[in-house]
């Protein structure tokens, strides 16, 4: 892996730009409900942008009985192969952080894929609370 995605909640202002950027990139619709990232308020004016952490020993990958989840070794993202996915939602239930998501509009499992190596959320984050940095 040459890049790492980092989240720095202390910089997050809860502006929700990441949410819109994500939804638009993946669905061409600016509906926050279709995003793979959710800034969640944990206190007054205090936010954490919650998104997939691309775990090393990922429960979602382990739980998929159809090998639809695989790590992209270049970007480091665990990607969902839509053709193989049958929507059983084992991954959704198995992710300890609740970050394998369901697109309610299409009733489909969706997952952060780091936009194939250029995550829109990080690009558009005005405060650099989200960053995608080269590490090697």
């Amino acid at each position: 892996m040459t890049y790492r995605y980092t989240v720095n909640p202390s910089r997050c202002t809860g502006c929700r730009t990441c949410e819109l950027a994500c939804a638009f990139t993946h669905t061409q619709e600016q509906k926050p409900g279709r995003s793979r990232i959710y800034p969640i308020a944990y206190g007054p004016d205090r936010f954490v942008p919650v998104t997939c952490l691309q775990c090393d020993d990922a429960s979602c990958v382990k739980s998929c009985l159809f090998d639809a989840l695989k790590r992209n070794e270049t970007t480091g993202a665990i990607e969902l192969d839509k053709d193989r996915c049958v929507n059983c939602r084992a991954c959704v239930a198995a992710c300890p952080f609740g970050c394998a998501l369901v697109d309610d509009v299409h009733d489909q499992v969706v997952k952060c894929d780091l936009c194939g190596g250029s995550p829109a959320c990080a690009r558009f984050c005005p405060t650099k609370a989200l960053e995608y940095k080269r590490i090697a």
Binding site: I40, V50, C95, L101
Partner: peptide, 13 residues
């Protein structure tokens, strides 16, 4: 998954 995300935000926060 919804509650897990809130939990994660609370812990990270």
């Amino acid at each position: 998954d919804d509650c897990k995300r809130v939990e994660l935000a609370r812990k990270m926060g």
